[in-house]
Amino acid sequence: MAIRHLAVEEILTTAYPLRAYAFGGSPGPVDLDELRRTWLPYQEGNRTLVAETADGVAMATATGIPMRQNLRGRVLPMAGVASVTTHPLGRRQGHVRELLQRLLDEMRDEGHLLSTLYPFRPSFYERFGYVGLAAARTATFPVADLAALLRADLPGEVRWTRAGPGYPEYVAFLDRCLTGRHGFAVFPGYRQVRVRDDDDRWLLTAHVDGVTEGLLTYRIDDHGGTLAADDLLAFGPLARTLLLQFLGRHVDQVERVSMVVAADDLPELWLTDLGVVCETRVTRPDHAAPMARLLSMDALDGLPAGAGRCRVELTTDRWLAGTWLLDGATGHLESRPHSTGDSALPVATLTAAGLSALAYGVLDPAELVIRGLGVVPPDAAVELRRIFPRDLPYLHANF
């Protein structure tokens, strides 16, 4: 099986048929001219690989998207992995494994220190060093329950436009979220610009003292129906309340509001008498929680850290294997190769998924042992908790 890169135009005839079969209803008509106009331009900066038979039949494809992600306050190059698909006659033959190794090799060589994806099967990707992140939740509530906010005199203002004209402000706000929120990730410009080009959302922003402090994009499905919003993004309760107050003005237009909120957000505490249903749905294969991993130990250097010190032995990983000293004594993490000579130093043996879980702040060292992601003696657990305090990430980008 030969692996090669696809030119952009080849994606339509080589990779897209497998994607359409895997992720859509089939069979069905394919309008290549329409796809060339409405879909292909947003793939031009991606890295798409294909595994082919000797006679040129595509058996599997995978795509890497050059993104950026915040890891504990540092914005790092991140490889988003998407559209991993296999021909129905080529499944369970190792094609995806070979593609992923090649794709991550290349993305890492280009400087991408992290990687995230939405898995078709989490256990498969755990063997590749990925660990699960918290899934965003959907909050649904009657718009009439926002009535109390209509009487509130709040400092600040909201502005309302369509996503196309408001795109520059949209991009600027996402970049601010990127620098301010652990786990937050954004697409490259060639992909993100589709929000402007599609122009199929309303864009609502909240402003306090002249600064954009909150943002929400949404659509209305029908009169008397649902105002369906994307991610609620706000720096603080005032901006969030300004956005909700605006939504409350739709009480005679729609019945309910549905929006995406971060896993650590608590809509039930936003407002007295707000009847809200918060749902996190994780099923296979249609609703996956994201996963992430470190691709290089360089991702850890300079992260904010507590004053812990531990030797970590990383096993059976293509990209991270080795023995490393993790030292947070200065308040910023240092990671460097380390010999096994210092018997007084606490030692933990981790998989790549185990170390990624600590770096992303999603699991405690004791949970790594329970999950089979490492061997962490009590003294090492103490040090690793100091180095990597729990910190729930919020990926935001959905690909």
Results as ranks from 00 to 15, higher is better:
H112W: 10
N46F: 09
L146E: 07
T283S: 10
D230H: 07
L384W: 05
I387D: 13
P122V: 01
D327S: 06
V75A: 11
R201S: 04
V369L: 06
L232H: 10
L395V: 02
A62T: 10
P88Q: 15
Q93M: 05
L325W: 14
L333G: 08
H396I: 02
T241F: 02
R102E: 14
L238V: 06
L227D: 06
A289K: 02
G214S: 07
H396R: 08
D200P: 02
R390V: 11
T205Y: 04
G225V: 03
G361L: 01
P29M: 12
H5V: 09
L243I: 01
L40E: 07
A135S: 10
G80D: 01
G156P: 02
I3Q: 12
P165E: 15
E268N: 09
A289W: 05
R176A: 03
A228W: 00
G331Y: 15
P393I: 05
A359C: 06
T138R: 11
R92G: 01
W39I: 06
T283H: 08
A2K: 13
G331D: 06
V251H: 14
S83P: 08
T38R: 14
H332F: 14
L242N: 08
V186L: 10
L227W: 06
L373C: 04
G322I: 03
R240P: 01
Y218S: 09
E313F: 02
G372E: 01
T63S: 15
R191Q: 11
L314H: 01
A352C: 04
V81W: 00
P155S: 13
A234T: 01
R390S: 15
R97T: 13
A22P: 01
E334N: 11
T241A: 12
V186S: 06
R256S: 09
V30G: 10
P188Y: 00
P393Y: 03
N398H: 11
P88S: 13
M1L: 11
L150T: 12
A353C: 02
L274I: 03
A58R: 03
Y130F: 09
W160V: 12
D252Q: 13
D317C: 08
E126G: 02
R293E: 04
S335H: 09
T85E: 12
G73I: 04
L18C: 05
L247G: 01
I3H: 13
R386Y: 07
L326M: 11
V376N: 02
L99A: 04
S83C: 12
V282M: 13
F399R: 00
P290F: 01
A7L: 14
Y170M: 12
A54P: 03
L35M: 15
A2V: 08
A206S: 05
G94L: 00
I3Y: 11
H332G: 07
D198G: 03
R371H: 08
R159L: 12
V171P: 02
F120K: 00
G322M: 02
G224T: 09
A2I: 13
Q69F: 03
V195T: 08
V158Q: 07
G341S: 14
T205S: 12
E44S: 13
I220K: 04
P188M: 03
L89Y: 13
S296W: 04
R181S: 07
R256E: 12
T212K: 10
A228T: 10
V251M: 11
L146Q: 04
L103H: 06
